[in-house]
C-alpha cells in the first residue's frame, strides 16, 4: 500500500523547500507520493526541475493565487 505524505513549505524561501523535499523523499518507498505545498515562485521552478531530473513523476497544481502543490511520485 503506497502512502501519501504532505510537506508544508508555505512561507519558506529558496532553497528550503527543495532541501526539505529532497530529505522527505529520501525516507519514502517507491510508489509513495509526496505533496509539497509551496508559495514561493522560485521553488515552483526548482523543485519540479529537480524531481524530473531524478526521474520521478511530477505534477504541479495551482491551488490558489501564488500557491501550488508539487506532486511527486517516487519512481525509483
Amino acid at each position: 500500500m503506497s502512502k501519501e505524505v504532505e510537506l508544508d513549505c508555505l512561507g519558506e524561501a529558496c532553497p528550503v523547500p527543495l532541501i526539505k523535499a529532497e530529505k522527505a523523499l529520501e525516507g519514502m518507498d517507491v510508489g509513495d507520493v509526496l505533496i509539497c505545498q509551496i508559495d514561493h515562485s522560485c521553488a515552483m521552478k526548482n523543485v519540479p526541475e529537480w524531481a524530473r531530473e531524478q526521474g520521478h513523476n511530477v505534477e504541479v497544481e495551482e491551488v490558489d493565487d501564488g500557491e501550488w502543490e508539487v506532486i511527486i511520485e517516487k519512481v525509483k
Partner: peptide
C-alpha cells in the same frame, strides 16, 4: 509580473526563526 500571473499572495509569518 506577479499580479498578471495571478501569483500575488500575502505570506504568513510562520516562525520567529524565519
Amino acid at each position: 509580473a506577479a499580479l498578471i500571473a495571478s501569483g500575488f499572495k500575502f505570506k504568513k509569518i510562520k516562525t520567529w526563526r524565519q
